[in-house]
Simulated assay, not measured.
Amino acid sequence: MAITMNLYYTGADGAARKFAEEMEATGTADAIRAREGNLCYRYFQPLDDPETVLLIDAWRDQAALDEHHASSMMAKIAELRDKYDLHMRAERYLSDDAGVPAHDQAFLRE
């Protein structure tokens, strides 16, 4: 059962975007993507809220997420959150490993 976290970083004067750009530029995001059990680590910006950045962060299971939380990368993330004075909110989702039901697949276009 995979775990997906939607993390919303909000700041002022473009701070959330600068945070995400620094995570990418320093290689911190790539290092997290390379961790065992990471399934997704991508930043997005809502069209209706330029002061917020959404991170979609998915892990194979709770053990992989716990290892990430115990890693030295969390200190770097916390340091950058403080640097850019960001506030956060989180949503947590669990997948059921069944995939997209057939009745929903008709709405998808690949």
Rank of each mutant, 00 (worst) to 15 (best):
R92W: 00
L55S: 10
I56T: 12
D66F: 02
L108Y: 11
T28N: 11
D82P: 00
Y93Q: 11
P50N: 04
L47D: 14
Y41H: 05
E67A: 15
E67R: 15
E21T: 05
I77F: 07
D57L: 03
I56H: 10
A34V: 09
R35Y: 08
R17H: 12
D85Y: 03
F44L: 13
A70G: 06
V53F: 02
H103S: 12
D104Q: 15
R109S: 15
R60C: 01
H69G: 10
L54Q: 06
M1Y: 02
S71N: 02
K76R: 15
G14R: 08
L55F: 00
A98F: 10
D96A: 03
A15F: 04
Y93K: 09
A29Q: 14
G27N: 04
A12K: 14
E21M: 08
M5A: 04
A29Y: 02
N6I: 13
F107D: 13
A90L: 12
A78H: 12
E24F: 03
T52P: 08
E67Q: 08
H103I: 14
N6E: 13
R42S: 14
L47E: 11
L54N: 10
F19Q: 07
L39D: 00
T26Q: 10
H69E: 10
D57F: 03
A12W: 00
F44E: 10
A102W: 03
G37I: 07
Y9P: 05
L39F: 05
A75Q: 11
M88R: 15
M1A: 13
Y41F: 06
G11W: 07
N6A: 14
M88D: 11
F19V: 07
A16S: 15
K83G: 05
R17V: 14
T26Y: 06
R42D: 14
D57Y: 07
A31G: 06
K83E: 01
D85G: 01
A31T: 00
G99E: 10
D85F: 02
R33S: 01
H68E: 09
K76L: 13
M23C: 12
I56Q: 15
Q45P: 01
H87S: 15
P46V: 08
Q105I: 04
V100L: 13
W59E: 06
M5P: 02
T26M: 01
L39S: 00
A75Y: 06
P50W: 03
M74D: 01
N38Y: 06
A64N: 00
Y8E: 03
H87I: 12
R92H: 00
T52S: 03
A31Q: 11
R89W: 07
R33V: 02
E22W: 06
T26H: 01
E79P: 00
R92S: 10
G27S: 06
D82N: 09
M5H: 01
Y9C: 00
